[in-house]
Amino acid sequence: MSDKKMKLKLHVYRQASKDAAGAMKEYVVEDVSEHMSFLEMMDHLNEQLMNKGEEPIAFDHDCREGICGMCSMVINGIPHGGHRGVTACQLHMRHFKDGDEIFVEPWRARAFPVLRDLVVDRQAFDRIVAAGGYVSINTGGAPDANALPISKKEADLSMDAAACIGCGACVAACKNASAMLFVAAKASHLNHLPQGEPERYERVKKMAAQMDAEGFGTCSNYSSCEAVCPKEISVRVIAEFNRDLLKAQAK
């Protein structure tokens, strides 16, 4: 296996703390292997920085296998770097070539304040889920499999929405910093199941109200969210959310 080594020029957003002023800073990273993931390349850069006695770049990461939703970098203007269905941790350096200039920025939204460098506070999402993204019945022990029949069609719709990992790329990509894809996915995932269906209209009302209170923008149907979503969630869920919220007004 060949292992080409690359030298890259990075422009990374640095901000010391929540209230400090931030700015883009230039770095040169040497010896980048094409087999590295984008986050491994950042680790590599951080090692170089630490060896020089500089403060490493803070960024969110956890599972590094594309399912936790922690990594959150806007790479060359696109959340997660613009390869369909992948998070930044699954983005490989073979997509870049020697001498490339790469811009790395945090998610940008009023509801996602920068805590440090590339780390943003995404608790607004937790508060939206806490407002209505739950089922308020006591489920007891795990029921027997297939005790509650759910049609394949409904199960698929629910599962497609449940794939959301809450990374916030939808907000970061949206020209309006709208959270509609996230909110609608969380609602749709419960609304298509018999346990969640009874609270369907209450749920969308509560989640929409919290979404507005958090200061996210409105949906203009750019579909940028769908394009960057690492789980490829369709804007179908947004239409469904809109329809449920409209129906909820009459209830």
């Binding site: 422009h11 203007g77 613009g82 709208s178 200061g215 996210f216 923008g217």
Partner: peptide, 22 residues
């Protein structure tokens, strides 16, 4: 809504927002 949406992103991307949109 335009005013609301501008307020929703007080700091723009330093380089560019290249996310696809028509």
């Amino acid at each position: 809504t335009v005013a609301l949406n501008r307020a929703a992103r007080p700091v723009e991307y330093a380089w560019a927002n290249k996310s696809p949109a028509r």
